[in-house]
Design a protein around this nucleic acid. Structure first.
Lengths: 134, 134
DNA sequence: CGTTTTCTTGACGTTAACGTCAACGTCACT
DNA sequence: AGTGACGTTGACGTTAACGTCAAGAAAACG
């Protein structure tokens, strides 16, 4: 139960971000570290949220998108209306992400094709006639 | 063999982009329409490139990334060194894209879990005790 | 206790990817 | 020849996601 708290520097080192980034995320209400005096201390919760933020970014989601997603991840004690709304939002996001993955799969196959093409082109150029060895 | 050329407006309507966007892509050397006087005319090639640009963007690739990818797609008559370089670049991109898709898959499963959680929470709230029907 | 780090809050700068606006040219009719 | 509709080139504006720098407080160290 040792609520292992991290300073801003420890966070930066752990997740490879700058202090500016963490404060920026805080200003955007994506994370909300506790304060000891004026210093920030990051709990397990903030670390989990930061991980989700960084992952979300790699998918091309905007911070605003991510903020909404994050809200889904901890609307534990809400009313039915809010919960329903969150549920809808999540379904939508999910759809987006699945579509994105499918498109990505197509693009991957395309690129693989293109690479194979180039490979054949290369081998035909580097081993001239295929008849003479060496 | 009717080299069906499109005006800027036809392009915009066909691909749902603005003229500004097309001129911007041109300035960034992603596309290079031919000129009839001062007017731009877009060939089959430009249309293909635009499609790739738009798809790339949906994956979160920057225009600069995309420019490099596009170059791979038409370095047909180059020397071996360039071809090899392009091949390496493509392999790298492919790796990135596959990693991205895998991560996306994980995130999708996560979100599906979260949604299921919320769904159960909802049904338990809206059909109170599960004993009394109606 | 003084010095060196680390952290804080502003405030302004930066890059990407366009949007918006001005001022002008030019087809396509009528 | 007039009038729209469409196209062109600048030039400046905008938003997101931070970077950078200044000035000060506070902790940590020797």
């Amino acid at each position: 139960m040792t609520e292992h708290l991290l300073t801003i520097r420890q966070m930066c080192d752990a997740y490879d971000v700058t202090p500016r980034t963490l404060r920026f995320y805080e200003a955007k209400e994506l994370i909300s570290p506790i304060r000891q005096g004026s210093r920030r201390l990051y709990t397990r919760r903030e670390r989990a949220r930061l991980k989700l933020i960084l992952r979300g970014k790699r998918f091309g989601f905007s911070l605003e998108d991510i903020r909404q997603l994050l809200d889904l991840y901890d609307t534990s004690g809400q009313n039915v209306a809010q919960l329903t709304r969150a549920h809808e939002l999540a379904q939508q996001r999910l759809g987006d992400m699945i579509r994105q993955r499918d498109e990505l799969s197509v693009a991957i196959e395309d690129l693989q094709q293109q690479i194979e093409w180039g490979r054949q082109m290369l081998t035909s150029l580097t081993s001239p006639s295929s008849a003479a060895a060496e």
